[in-house]
Write a protein that binds this DNA or RNA. Structure first.
Length: 328
DNA sequence: ACATATAGCCTCCGGCC
DNA sequence: GGCCGAAGGCTATATGT
């Protein structure tokens, strides 16, 4: 990640170091402040920073608001016997590389540190070193397997517009599958696709099986089987989301009064207590609760309007609306 | 691995107020 | 125009063979 752009980073560091005037310090501080929001724009939840991943994400809905964050804090070495302080050194670990991004790579350009072209003799030497470097970095079949699978996961996730956090979850799942010996006899692409499918659901950005099939190299049935297999063998319960997590987002899309959201929250709580929600889509529960709350608070709206804002059909809103009212 | 059953959700449509 | 309900189809999931 950061290893790929050493120049831009170094130049930025130079700029900061060279400009010791108050003016430039102010601009630097402003730049840092611009990423200091603490509330999620989607659901209003608390944003927390994960320094290890270089991300900031919402604790409620999982929305990643800031990736590839560059830590401009002190980069000092620790000589005291206080290992906790040595935490932030080097690039953040990533599950998306078979070696977790820990290794370095010999560049492809045949140039020295000053950008000058290498002599033919040196060039031949570097080519030999590159070959061996590559061999060591993916030395056994399992490493090569991981490299191929993570490449697939990354490619499919890009095609589906899934965030990096989802790719990381998918990569972790795949690694777990390998560690549990679930790979032999199954195709890499199938398990990789299933890992991504599961990760997308787990990180609240689900994609349908059809969407995944469209970007995967294996057919729909294989992905489906691999998914079941993973769920069964790894005992993965993909717990359905709480309807309340969708309330705030829908509510702000619809531009209702805050009171509507409070009432809707109460309605959902009662519905959940009576187990009306089980087996039902949390989306439809949230949509119906908003419709019911709007009616109870004399807010002007229609089923069609809520259907548009939530993507839940008006028929389903009607059904869940009845369910919710029955238990109040 | 494949077939079948079930439940949830969807679209489409017509009737009612 | 908005609400309601029925019919039929699609999909995900569970279960049986």
């Amino acid at each position: 990640m950061s290893q790929q752009q050493p120049h831009s980073r170094r130049e930025a560091a130079h700029r900061d170091a060279d400009s010791s005037t108050g003016v430039s310090n102010t601009t630097r501080d402003e730049r840092r402040d611009s990423t200091h929001e603490t509330v999620c724009s989607e659901c209003g939840g608390q944003l927390t920073r994960d320094e290890r991943r270089g991300e900031r994400a919402c604790t409620d809905c999982g929305l990643v608001v800031d990736e590839d964050h560059i830590d401009r804090g002190p980069e000092w070495r620790e000589f005291m016997d206080d290992s906790e302080n040595k935490g932030r050194v080097g690039a953040p670990l990533t599950e998306l590389h078979h070696d977790r991004g820990l290794s370095t790579k010999i560049g492809w350009q045949n140039k020295d540190a000053f950008g000058k072209a290498l002599q033919p003799k040196q060039r031949a030497k570097m080519e030999r070193l590159r070959t061996w470097d590559e061999r060591f970095r993916s030395k056994d079949s399992q490493e090569r397997n991981l490299k191929q699978a993570f490449g697939e996961i990354d490619r499919m996730a890009s095609a589906l517009g899934l965030p990096k956090s989802t790719r990381e979850v998918a990569a972790r799942l795949y690694r777990t599958a390998i560690n549990n010996g679930l790979l032999p006899g199954r195709c890499i692409e199938g398990i990789a696709s299933a890992s991504l499918y599961t990760a997308a659901r787990k990180t609240q950005s689900p994609r349908s099986l059809d969407e995944l099939t469209a970007v995967s190299r294996v057919d729909r049935l294989r992905i489906q089987r691999a998914y079941r297999y993973l769920m069964r063998e790894l005992d993965l319960g993909v717990e359905p989301a709480n309807p309340e997590t969708y309330l705030h987002r829908f509510h702000s899309t619809l531009g209702f009064d805050d009171e509507v959201e409070y009432v809707a929250r109460d309605l959902i709580e009662t519905a959940v207590e009576h187990n009306v929600h089980s087996g039902k889509s949390p989306l439809s529960m949230a949509a119906a609760a908003l419709y019911a709350a709007a009616r109870l608070t004399n807010t002007e709206t229609t089923q069609a309007e809520i259907s548009d804002a939530t993507g839940v059909s008006d028929v389903t809103i009607r059904d869940r609306y009845q369910d919710i009212l029955e238990v109040q």
